[in-house]
Design a protein around this nucleic acid. Sequence first.
DNA 1: TATTGTTATACTCTATAACTATA
DNA 2: TATAGTTATAGAGTATAACAATA
Lengths: 177, 177
Amino acid sequence: MADNSTANTLRRTGPPRKTISASRAAASADTAGTVGTIDTAYLQTLLGYNARRAALTVISVFLRRMEPYDLRPVDFSVLSVVAHNPGVTSRQICNTLDILPPNLVGMIKSLQKRGLIARLPHPTDRRAQGLHLTEPGLQLYTEAQATATGLEQAVTDRITPAELQTLNELLRKVYAR
Amino acid sequence: MADNSTANTLRRTGPPRKTISASRAAASADTAGTVGTIDTAYLQTLLGYNARRAALTVISVFLRRMEPYDLRPVDFSVLSVVAHNPGVTSRQICNTLDILPPNLVGMIKSLQKRGLIARLPHPTDRRAQGLHLTEPGLQLYTEAQATATGLEQAVTDRITPAELQTLNELLRKVYAR
DNA sequence: TATTGTTATACTCTATAACTATA
DNA sequence: TATAGTTATAGAGTATAACAATA
């Protein structure tokens, strides 16, 4: 935790401060030019900063635990959407996960090459293709999903399950626009 | 919000599901191969997914509103640390913001070239250099900080200020390890 | 021997333009 | 005329190795 003496003046809920001179003075009052503990109190008031740091923390654990399945977060997300929405098209995945079409092509190709997904002709639109998990794909994804659920519990061991649910709900309210 | 009939079975707080067949059946029961609304209920239970989506949402607004200052999120973070910790060293910034030293060099160089920061000889360590905001740097950062505070309020208009504070506190508990 | 700042470089991620086949 | 999928490619972001100067 950062120094509370300066944090209190920065974390107040009122209007934005006009200057930052108070906290500058507080941070450099003791020595001339050297800094001990770094004051990040202001950045810690920013949702963008906190959300990004938290996401990177979770993702680093994700990368480690998903190594056995050779799945990056985006691969897992794609598999998850296909698993829960058999017959989904590439374009639908792009819209759902905010992936640009050219960047999805390689992922789909790779997952298909690994035998995890299959592309079937779309029943009504000959331009599109319906994506489905293969049997090995379903087996791998099922294990990966259990791993994902487990690592979430591990990485959130500093908050209660109720707090985690609150956290997820609040985050969804921010990005669901 | 996603379909609650399937979401309820996926969002429960018990142990991980062994299979995903129930939600697959639910998603594809009506038509053979086509998908209407995409079910992302499972992904929405993952903090990693929600935090990343929320961060990207905030960042996209950040990029737009910070255009007048020509500051990316990382530039703003660096300026913020320097502003609140005059005399801080590059290495300290790297440790604080999780930036690798080689990737900070160019940013510092650029901010210095723009006349926003100055590198002064470190008082006790001749290898290091203390970073400080210039007067124009302080002026620009002060405006940018007010803009950042303002855009946070705009992007979190779906939750209350109290909820935002809860959200930020919970996120910090996740990444402060 | 370890650390600060740096260069060079490779790798990954993200974004844009343009094409084809079909709607 | 618009959309689904694709190719090629550019740009931004992130990573490792290795070096000189100093601790």
